[in-house]
Design a protein around this nucleic acid. Sequence first.
DNA 1: GACTTGTAGACGACTGGTCTATTATGTTAC
DNA 2: GTAACATAATAGACCAGTCGTCTACAAGTC
Lengths: 204, 204
Amino acid sequence: MGRTNTREEIVRKGAELIHAQGFNATGLQQILQAAGIPKGSFYFYFKSKEDFGLAIIDYFSAIIGEIFTHYLSDGKIPPLKRLEKLFGFFEAAFQKSGNARGCPIGNLSLELAGTNERLRLHLAGVIETLIAQLASCLEEAKRDQSIPSDLNTADTARFIFQGFEGAVMHMKVVKSIEPFQGFRNFLLEYFKNIYPPRLSAPRG
Amino acid sequence: MGRTNTREEIVRKGAELIHAQGFNATGLQQILQAAGIPKGSFYFYFKSKEDFGLAIIDYFSAIIGEIFTHYLSDGKIPPLKRLEKLFGFFEAAFQKSGNARGCPIGNLSLELAGTNERLRLHLAGVIETLIAQLASCLEEAKRDQSIPSDLNTADTARFIFQGFEGAVMHMKVVKSIEPFQGFRNFLLEYFKNIYPPRLSAPRG
DNA sequence: GACTTGTAGACGACTGGTCTATTATGTTAC
DNA sequence: GTAACATAATAGACCAGTCGTCTACAAGTC
């Protein structure tokens, strides 16, 4: 087995188990056994479990980043519609796994930020990137005049992200998609009402 | 030392450590050593670490519930102002501990919901109660006519809670109060604009 | 004195991450 | 074709730490 294959196998299986059980609750033994890779190999590919954690975060970050890009940069669709589609995608994805696993980045953030500074910083970077992607989509919406020109897109993007993470947490703890749907509906309603700006004559 | 004292000491010290480090990352040994209580006593008061987890959740739930009640049921202040004050209190509390620990209920939810059904259900109950307290405050705001009469208070309360948890997560991962302040401002702005209801003209 | 309530901490079985010694594989030189 | 070497990969021991159990003992109460 080539070098990258083995390493990638460890990351993939590890990501899967960690997503379901958490970082601390998932032992290397379990990951390696599930992947059919001997224990000794692990420390050939990773310096420590902490380093492995970084790789796991990168793995999740890449997946989510691609999803964000795919939906939020789709020039064929108006910006706010893209956001809607993104949520629709996540809703379907969550339901496929019983709404029980939540957001891997959010999970790891709360579990590890308190005890590991390196992982915390890494996670913070990932989150910032995702928020920036949202903000950039909102900027397009502004040019599109579907949101007010004086709206602070950075703040709004952050608010959306926070709401998203909170909704996914709620979803996970009750194991139902409903809290996520509630969030999505609330947000879409918000965007529907935010424009045209109040009292100034409706958009013609 | 009377029965309740020892037990309470374990819970208090445990809650403190678990809040900072997480449930799995905190061993019984560490808690008991920090509290100066021998190991043997633990299993006199608790059947298992899982049962101890239930007690910890109850402990946090009681504290937060009291805070919610104190602020949200304060009849001397208009409902929406109470909400504002509640956020102000949390902001100060977060800063006092370096914005690094987050919400204990949120932390435990994401860490444990995936692996322990009993704890998950317990956490879900606590969350439902908190949302209900928010909703009840919003109901008062409705009677007060500071929010539209057709607003769904249950949905809105849930949305606020989700945003809150997401903001606190964000705060914890960047170790800064800013994300929380952003959330608070955004929400207050929302309430400022939601009423009086928009002429019902636009968007039609 | 007998019973309950609580303390004390050694002990067990097991799992955690880590490390060193060793084997397999591949490449090059002759 | 094979000897020499370097790198890729494995095996499993290692010890600290995990939760949980157990027996022995103190103190207080009837």
